[in-house]
Simulated assay, not measured.
Amino acid sequence: MAGEALRTFDGEAVRRHLDYPSCLKVVRDAMMALSAGRTRQLLRSMIQMGEGRTFAQMPGTLGDDDMFGAKLISVFADPDRPGTRRHRGLVVMFEPENGRPVCVADAEEITHIRTAAASAVATDALAKPDARTLLIAGTGGQARSHLHALPLVRTFDHVVIWGRDPAKAEALAQDAAEKLGLPATSCRELKAAAERADVICTLTTAREPFLFGDWIRPGTHINLVGSSAAGPVEVDTPLVARSRYFVDSRASALDAAAEFLVARDEGAVADSHILAEIGDVLLNRAPGRESPSDITVYKSLGHAVQDLAAAAHLYRS
Rank of each mutant, 00 (worst) to 15 (best):
M1R: 14
G3R: 12
R7S: 12
R7C: 04
D19T: 03
C23N: 15
V26D: 09
V27K: 11
Q41R: 02
R53N: 11
P59A: 03
T61N: 01
T61W: 13
M67C: 11
G69E: 06
L72H: 15
V75A: 07
A77T: 04
D80N: 05
H87N: 10
R88A: 14
E95C: 02
P96C: 13
G99I: 06
C103S: 08
A118C: 15
A118P: 07
A122S: 12
D124A: 12
K128I: 05
K128S: 10
A137W: 01
T139R: 08
L147F: 02
H148D: 06
A149W: 08
L150M: 04
L150I: 08
P151E: 05
K168Q: 06
A176T: 03
A176Y: 05
A177Q: 15
A177K: 13
K179G: 00
L180T: 09
L182C: 06
R188Q: 14
E189K: 13
K191L: 04
A193N: 00
A194G: 03
E195F: 01
R196H: 04
R196P: 09
A197D: 05
A197H: 04
V199H: 00
T204V: 04
R207H: 15
F212H: 15
T220A: 15
H221V: 00
H221K: 03
I222H: 04
L224I: 14
S227L: 08
E234R: 09
L239A: 08
V240N: 03
V240D: 09
R244P: 02
V247D: 02
A251M: 11
S252K: 07
L261T: 07
E266I: 01
V269K: 08
L275W: 01
G279N: 03
D280Y: 00
L282C: 07
N284Y: 12
N284S: 13
A286H: 12
R289H: 04
S291I: 09
D294Q: 10
I295H: 10
T296V: 11
K299D: 13
S300R: 04
V305A: 05
A312M: 02
